[in-house]
Design a protein around this nucleic acid. Structure first.
Lengths: 202, 202
DNA sequence: TGGAAAAACGAACGTATGTTTACTTCCAGC
DNA sequence: GCTGGAAGTAAACATACGTTCGTTTTTCCA
């Protein structure tokens, strides 16, 4: 019968996704070619098609999985933070920065290769991204309503905060001068200070 | 003798650069092909080579010119701001946001197509970018020394601020809900609030 | 106005690319 | 041990791409 799960097929599929992530991160999707990808995995170019439907489908699968993982991780962090608004806001920002350092390749792809997706695929990834942004805008709106935050425009401020915190994955290196904890604390403080109402500060 | 400046040649060259800027912005450098570019200009693909040396040289020229213009505009804004530190910091941030809205295509290219450059070309663009970042880190250092700013790490903070303010060119549209002035004010305030020392605030 | 350089044309070259196809190899289950 | 499907090979196909080249057209100074 068919080869069972866990056999070479699944391992090759995972190797293809891992190698593709690195190649797309370094060269961009359009500049990556399937011959280089196959060589990195150690198989012939044609054999890729035992595991993927097309180059486009490979990109879409990678982006969808990473966006889903980001959303799931965020929701878990929010749940663990408890009900207090500022705790949840801090948890969102901390998780965002940490996640963007630890999985910077996947995140960079999800942020920069939207234009390489066919329209239907792009719409689905954009929907996931919007859902993620909605987590932050909801927190900001809550904070404004509670009189804790000073946010002139919730949508634009959310974009600006996410852009700042996402920027870290374009230069962060694990062996860099500062550790993860320091970078998380620095970025979260920078973002929070930008929106806290002054009279509530020490 | 040779055709003089201002004849069709110069106009075609400018049209090529303008069309290339739009195509690279929308599709990315690797995904843009010279046949589409030539069609948009209204000439045959081979005729492009009367005006450019190669596709790579075209990208490098675009990036170099835009980085040089950004640096020149920044220095002009700093000069116009006078000697006071906070005035100069505000001028830098205002100019950055405004420039990134008005020339968002060129800036997006300069920020995202570094990997498409050959090593020698990349080194030259990176040098221009470093010079730009140095303008901000110098201001931050001055602010810390004067006791006006609270910046735990100058380099990382500068990266974070630039990432936040640069993010605007990935979503700004001239016909959007908010005007340029509002967006400049919002972003500059957000960035400044993140680093101002608390006791100096109202 | 004649002539020479510049600019554009039209067609081709060589190669790289995503993908397909026919064939072989390997392994689990009857 | 036979068998069938999954996984891999080797080679090819069709096309798209950056670039070149010989020729023709346009432009403007002498």
């Amino acid at each position: 019968m068919a080869r069972t799960t866990g056999s070479n097929g699944a391992r090759t599929h995972a190797a293809i996704r891992a190698a593709a992530t690195g190649l797309i991160y370094r060269q961009g999707f359009a500049a990556m070619n399937l011959r280089d990808l196959a060589a990195e995995v150690g198989i012939q170019p044609g054999s890729l098609y035992n595991h993927i439907d097309s180059k486009q489908a490979l990109l879409f699968d990678l982006m969808q999985d990473h966006m889903a993982a980001l959303l799931a991780g965020t929701d878990a962090a929010l749940d663990a933070a408890g009900p207090a608004l500022m705790d949840r806001l801090r948890a969102f920002l901390d998780h965002h920065v940490l996640y963007h350092m630890e999985r910077r390749e996947e995140i960079a792809i999800a942020n920069s290769e939207l234009r390489a997706l066919e329209p239907e695929n792009r719409a689905r990834i954009v929907a996931l991204r919007s859902a993620y942004e909605a987590r932050l805008t909801a927190l900001l709106r809550e904070g404004v309503a509670a009189g804790l935050l000073s946010v002139p425009d919730v949508a634009v401020t959310a974009y600006a905060m996410l852009a700042m915190l996402t920027g870290i994955c374009s230069w962060y290196r694990p062996d860099g001068r500062l550790g993860k904890e320091e970078l998380v604390a620095l970025h979260t403080a920078l973002a929070l200070n930008g929106i806290l109402r002054r009279q509530h500060q020490a």
